[in-house]
Design a protein around this nucleic acid. Structure first.
Lengths: 202, 202
DNA sequence: GTCAGTCACATACTCCGAGTATGTCTCTGA
DNA sequence: TCAGAGACATACTCGGAGTATGTGACTGAC
């Protein structure tokens, strides 16, 4: 039976949240490299000891943030994909959801701008294997199965399409709020064109 | 009249070269973040003082390397583009030249894998404004002028296509030598598809 | 009720590496 | 020949990540 968490447990969860929130703010504004752990601790009104109690390292803190963001945002994109019968339609729906998420100030900035700098390319890719990269791969598989994409595509298409997503995410993350809607539209075009081109390239 | 450089000048140019070569090796193998300037100096058989005499900082050293690489490799790609009459044919020729350059062990690893980590996204983009990014932009302009691409494209297409180049470059940089030729072929397909898709998307 | 043990941090430290300040030797030009 | 500058080497500072240790609060066993 799920007994209420002890008072102690509540408090520690509160500081963990405070640390994640502070890190999200600072990493988004100043960037990962230019924020020290002392800064994060100060904003969360604790000390560095608290950080190393809850997280393994500075990249570890970032990764926890990353996981949290991807779990919700990428889940929404996957839901948008799976809601559609046609994989191409679903992929474009997921793309729209993705572009929308990147328009929100934190997601794109952290997951596609800061993450490679904070974790390095390999670790980043490894993290993404569970989220955006996996979703992209699944969508391409579904489109292949539906005959919308040449059957014998290699790993390159997935990597390159993922690069497109990253570029779009970064672009939106640095776009002023008033221009984001227009830029989202412009970002959509290359993906549509790519799918159209793949459909006629056998 | 271009008098011979003094003995002094020859020596200093030699150490500068040794530093750049050592940095190229270490940055390629261990990565920018995991190599200290003392390491670079040791391989070049000098000390850190020599580095700061020739370069402004650690990113400054990297940037000098970057410029040197792009000057030659990107020049070849641009030449390949300009040698063709048809802009689409020229763009694909430049792409092939680019993919070939990224198959060589240093170029792709430094310019597309390490550079964003070493310089940060903004500074990297600023450096690339003179080279790959500029070439890409010029090629898209030429194709637009030739009616191969919708006229009112925004900045997004350039950014996203540049993201594709980066992804392809990184992929080739981490591909084993024996697989590179096959992967180059796979990398070509998405670009061809994109251009084909843009041509029919008005 | 108390006491051992553990959790959730705070405090105080180490260590590494980028950047700086300064010294030294050599070459050059007046 | 001597003043100056160029080309480094040496010795330092300093910031920040990571570590070791201390401490108070809570909890669970007896």
């Amino acid at each position: 039976m799920p007994e209420v968490k002890s008072r102690r447990g509540e408090y520690t969860e509160a500081t963990r949240r405070a640390l994640l929130d502070a890190a999200a703010d600072l990493f988004t504004e100043r960037g990962f490299a230019r924020t020290s752990l002392d800064d994060v601790a100060a904003v969360a009104r604790v000390t560095k000891g608290a950080i190393y109690h809850h997280f393994s390292s500075k990249p570890g803190l970032f990764e926890a943030l990353f996981e949290e963001l991807e779990r919700t945002e990428n889940g929404a994109a996957r839901a948008a994909f799976e809601a559609e019968e046609d994989p191409t339609v679903g992929a474009l729906a997921a793309l729209d959801q993705f572009l929308l998420a990147c328009s929100e100030p934190v997601y794109g900035a952290l997951v596609f701008r800061e993450a490679p700098l904070a974790l390095g390319w390999d670790a980043w890719r490894l993290c993404e294997e569970k989220y955006s990269y996996a979703l992209l791969s699944d969508m391409l598989d579904a489109m292949t199965a539906a005959g919308r994409i040449p059957a014998h595509r290699g790993e390159a298409l997935t990597s390159i399409a993922f690069g497109m997503l990253g570029a779009a995410g970064q672009l939106l993350a640095r776009t002023r709020a008033e221009d984001r809607e227009r830029v989202r539209g412009e970002c959509r075009a290359p993906f549509v064109a790519l799918l159209a081109g793949l459909a006629i390239t056998e």
